[in-house]
Amino acid sequence: MSKKSFNPDVDVVEWTGTHRPYDIIKEGTIALVVMSLLVVLLSALFSSPDDRPATLRQWSHSDPVDFANTAFSELNGSSGTAGYGQPYNNTPNATQTIGPLALQRWMGVHIPVHPAADFVLATLATLPDSPIISAALQQWKSSSNTAQFTWMENFAKVTPTFSAGALHFPPVDAGPIPVLMSGLTSMARAGSLDQSLLGGGSNYYSTDYTRPLLFLADGNWFSGLAEKQHLAGDQWGMMNETGSYPGQAWLWLYTFWYQVPPFSASENADSLIWGLMMVLTVIMIFVPFIPGVRSIPRRTKVYRLIWRNHYRK
């Protein structure tokens, strides 16, 4: 009774049979040569994708109205970033949960982004020698919250147009907002907005693209570019690549969940799918300890093909 019973999915009888010559160094060398040749061949045949990055400058040239609408949504707090919640800001009830677990909210604001100030007001304040912008900013700052709210309500009702290199707005009682929006659009078209949004605590160096990327992602132009390339989330975008290149095919299972109910219609899709993938990953890593799953190889008998010479004897 001292020995526990033999479980064929866990235990083995160690091999005491015959051995054959097997030169692992030679095998490795051949593998190295073959794989190196394959890599060079594939690189020469197919190259690799490299579409130039999108810029706020390009955006404001290609679709200035979308840019201006997005800039206004940053100011009035209706943009995706403004309503994101943690880790960027404290917008209530914005974050995703896994059941009772509000991990996203609990972690708090670690990368503070306040779009109205960071994307619009503070950015415009960096413009030198522009009395019109300075006056508009001054008017905005010195006005009451109620006045600002009324201006934003009124401005939200008008649709800007773009011609002759400038934004045009129908007559509207929106205080300094038209001037601010025109100013930011000019700044973007000149290319200076891309640089001025960079973060990182230095007034010169930066490797932190959090703010320009969030701004870019709030508009329709950027996602339009991606949809044309089948990169959107509901297009299995995570595993796709620009052009006709293969992408991160190994993400197929993660990407798959976004396409099917209940996830495809869930507000919590990201957190639910991440939770699910973590569970599946743990299952994969601990297969040797999971009864049933660890019996699949023995029951499917694929191993009889692999070791067919052995079983033939």
């Binding site: 994708p49 490299d50 579409d51 130039r52 990055p53 999108a54 994101y84 943690q86 880790p87 974050t95 995703q96 991990l103 996203q104 609990w106 972690m107 708090g108 670690h110 990368i111 932190d208 693209y209 959090t210 990327l213 969030l214 870019l216 992602a217 950027f222 570019l225 991606a226 990169l231 989330g233 975008g237 995570m238 690549e241 620009t242 919590n268 990201d270 957190s271 799918i273 991440w274 939770g275």
Partner: peptide, 27 residues
């Protein structure tokens, strides 16, 4: 490049939803 911009802005939502994004900023 464009690919990295797009992947980063897409992936942020998944990683942020776990709370890890607060420390691991894909942007």
């Amino acid at each position: 490049n464009f690919d990295s911009q797009w992947i980063a802005t897409q992936a942020k939502d998944g990683i942020n939803s776990t709370g890890i994004g607060a420390y691991f900023n894909v942007l």
